[in-house]
Design a protein around this nucleic acid. Structure first.
Length: 415
DNA sequence: TCTGGGGTCCTAGGACCC
DNA sequence: TCTGGGGTCCTAGGACCC
């Protein structure tokens, strides 16, 4: 007998802010924000004033004069996020972690052990509250997409179950932007067609959606609105790219700005690759100008890179090419490096003999091997003495960063 | 709202091969 | 010589998500 699909979607509420309020009772019931120059997370009390994550701190203070900023305790976020998502694992091994504070769980095979999915969802909420002290919302439905919408509807600190057969009624009056894949652009295009609710979306022919939104998005939405969602819960994702970026304010597009920034970014990206014995064949850079318009340039190499200096050089050439195509842009506001086409890096380079015909653009060349050897020595020292102990430290980037590195790490995917 | 950082996926055109 | 069709890879841009 087939097991009825039963998917839980669990989502911790205003996660960072809730942790701060948990750890410091004086903050409970008050509008708080994690961050400073930029809001990384806001409590529900702050959200009521319109404070949102990503918002400039200055603007957030203007909206909410009593807003209280806290610097953030990132190690605690990791510990509590892991603990909360870990509780799902007590009910099923089929847990798909989406981010530090969010996961799907397929509990269809566990009902004989723990009872109905709704009972499991209640137990998860009870235990997260009792054992960790945190609010969490859960959605329960037959598909991932529906479970996710249900948890959004359940927020804050609630539970919404969508019983089989009631899907259409549940979705009918909900706004289209609750659907996965409907952002500001799709929402506006749908609004132009007179489609604002999921019920209206479901009544729109698939070909019409595909014409307006593109084949993939349109087709997907049509399927989802009809409650067809083939996606399975996947316990392990392999990262397909690794990147890093730095916002720069408005800086002149000169070598003095570009070189050290790219070296710092290349160091972050390449060190992560090496730590997992991986390397990538495609290097992409992104240059954002003062007006926030942006361009990308990429190159696919014959051999994968993971040496910091090689990556930095390739990125520099790409940035120069991008700037050459936009000679009128004199100020840049962001630089980014990303590496994709990732491969297992068996590190054969270390065994290669030094060659005279040295092409440093080829990571497998003698220079590439020497660089990798030097990088490994740096990696080893950092492992022992910390990241700041050695390396491309002269890079500094002015010392004051908009976002601390520990926060960046929370967003990194496992390679 | 003048926007922080890490990601995924899709589209469309062009190069190149069979 | 010209024409047709299918497949794969690369590049640039963009929408979207947490």
């Amino acid at each position: 007998m087939a097991v009825a699909a039963a998917i839980l979607h669990a989502d911790l509420d205003a996660f960072y802010a809730s942790v701060e309020q948990l750890l410091d009772p004086a903050l409970r019931g008050r509008p708080i924000a994690v961050g400073g120059g930029v809001v990384l997370a806001a409590s529900y009390e702050a959200k009521a004033f319109g404070v949102r994550s990503g918002m400039a701190g200055r603007r957030a203070r203007a909206l909410c004069p009593d807003l209280h900023f806290v610097p953030g305790r990132f190690a605690e976020y990791r510990r509590l996020g892991d603990a909360a998502i870990g509780l799902l694992g007590d009910f099923t091994p089929l847990v798909e972690r989406i981010s530090i504070d969010e996961a799907f769980a397929d509990v269809g095979g566990s009902v004989h052990l723990f009872g109905a999915p709704e009972e499991m969802a209640k137990a998860v909420r009870r235990r997260v509250r009792a054992e960790l002290g945190l609010p969490i919302s859960l959605g329960v439905a037959a598909t991932k997409h529906l479970a996710k919408i249900a948890s959004q509807v359940a927020k804050p600190d609630g539970l919404v179950v969508v019983p089989a057969g009631t899907e259409r009624a549940f979705l009918h009056d909900l706004p289209v932007e609750l659907m996965w894949g409907v952002g500001p652009v799709a929402r506006a295009r749908l609004a132009d067609m007179g489609v604002a609710t999921i019920g209206q979306l479901a009544a729109t022919p698939g070909w019409s959606l595909e014409r307006i939104l593109g084949r993939a998005v349109g087709g997907k939405l049509a399927a989802l609105a009809a409650n067809r969602d083939p996606r399975q819960v996947v316990t392990r994702h392999r990262a397909r790219s690794v990147g890093a970026q730095s916002a720069l304010g408005r800086r002149p597009a000169t070598d003095e700005v570009i070189r050290p920034t790219l070296l710092h970014l290349a160091d972050r990206v390449a060190a992560r690759l090496r730590a997992k014995s991986r390397a990538g064949r495609t290097v992409t850079v992104r240059v954002r100008f003062a007006d926030l318009s942006a361009v990308t340039r990429s190159v696919t190499l014959g051999q994968a890179v993971s040496a910091t200096a090689s990556l930095a050089e390739i990125a520099r050439d790409l940035v120069r090419a991008a700037l050459a195509d936009h000679p009128d842009e004199r100020l840049i506001s962001l630089l980014a490096i990303s590496v994709s086409h990732l491969e297992r890096n068996p590190m054969p380079q270390l065994e290669l003999p030094l060659r005279l015909a040295d092409d440093k653009r080829r990571p497998g060349s003698a220079t590439g091997a020497a660089r990798l050897t030097a990088d490994r020595a740096i990696d080893a020292i950092r492992d022992r003495f910390g990241r700041g102990a050695i390396g491309y430290g002269s890079v500094v980037l002015g010392g004051r960063r908009a976002v601390p590195d520990v926060f960046r790490e929370l967003a990194e995917k496992t390679l």
